[in-house]
């Protein structure tokens, strides 16, 4: 059999067909990052370009004044499942395409509610967009464009884009914790001092409970960590509470798979059981005189 031009084309076509069906390699592979902060999920999805020796990237490969999506191919998206603020600017629940107008000093971040845009479909200014200035900073690298959550606290997180020696930080603030207040007078039924113990240990500790401004607060003398010395009881159901740790007067951490169940007789708590996820009793408390 002679290897003719026709056979060569057929072989290329066959190879191309095989490649299209099986290989998924992209120059800028898809990536993403998400962070949950106090129940708010923040998600970034993007294609990840590499520098590949191109320099300078900003002001060169990407000219000053260009409205660029910090990613590649389809525009990078930012999705939030609660209303948040980004660098102090309100951003409603939803999914947005992310753009940055690059300039020598101050850039402009543009969040466009049209999430599915190709990278060359640079959006024009629109009242539906959220736009605000940012000052980029110098960083080492990275070779691969990277979005990451560099810090978080009970009130928010910092989302950073870094690439080719430049980083832009977005400070995202999430809705505050709202603990349902107790009805007037309800907290008083639990107020008092309790001795408490774990069912498998003989050691006892003291839990002092006070009702204040619709909240039920506690001081735990035998807390396993100092952070649990000051508590707030988070209502789950009548007489049931999750235990929250307070730091500097703010809710810091809540254990949600362990529940305090107060036993109430004649309108006054006589003690409590601490139940684990299997509903077995893992600790108890009884009111001190």
């Amino acid at each position: 059999m002679r290897w003719t031009r026709g056979w060569s084309l057929a072989a290329i076509a066959l190879l191309a067909g095989t490649t299209a069906g099986q290989a998924q390699v992209r120059a800028s592979e898809r990536g993403g990052a998400f962070q949950v902060v106090n129940g708010t999920k923040i998600t970034v999805e993007y294609s990840r370009p590499l520098v590949r020796g191109r320099s300078p990237m900003f002001g060169g490969q990407i000219p000053w004044g260009e409205v660029w999506t910090p990613g590649a191919n389809w525009a990078t998206t930012l999705e939030v499942d609660h209303d948040v603020t980004v660098n102090g600017h309100a951003l409603a629940t939803g999914k947005y395409s992310v753009w940055m107008e690059v300039q020598p000093k101050e850039w402009t971040v543009i969040l466009d509610p049209r999430a599915k845009l190709f990278h060359i479909a640079h959006p024009k200014p629109d009242s539906a967009q959220v736009r605000f200035p940012v000052t980029p900073s110098d960083v080492d690298g990275p070779e691969v464009l990277t979005w990451s959550f560099t810090s978080f606290s009970p009130t928010g997180t910092t989302l950073q884009m870094a690439w080719a020696g430049t980083a832009v930080a977005l400070d995202i603030a999430v809705p505050p914790v709202e603990i349902p207040p107790l009805a007037a007078g309800v907290g008083e039924r639990y107020a008092g001092r309790y001795k408490m113990w774990w069912v498998s240990e003989s050691n006892q500790s003291v839990l002092a409970v006070v009702a204040k401004d619709g909240r039920l607060l506690g001081q735990w003398s035998g807390a396993p960590f100092p952070v649990w010395n000051n508590l707030t009881f988070v209502p789950v159901a009548e007489d049931w509470f999750d235990l929250g740790a307070m730091v500097d007067g703010s809710l810091y951490d809540v254990v949600t798979d362990v529940v305090f169940e107060f036993a109430v007789t004649d309108g006054r708590a006589t003690g409590f059981e601490i139940r684990g996820p299997t509903d077995l009793v893992i600790g108890r408390g009884s009111r001190l005189p």
Binding site: V37, V199, P224, V234, V254, V258, I282
Partner: peptide
Amino acid sequence: CSRRHFLAACCGVAAVGVAGPLWAA
């Protein structure tokens, strides 16, 4: 498991950051 269970629960919540509070509420 008692106290150990509570400690594990504390660590578990800590491990997922501050996702707990709003969820709990």
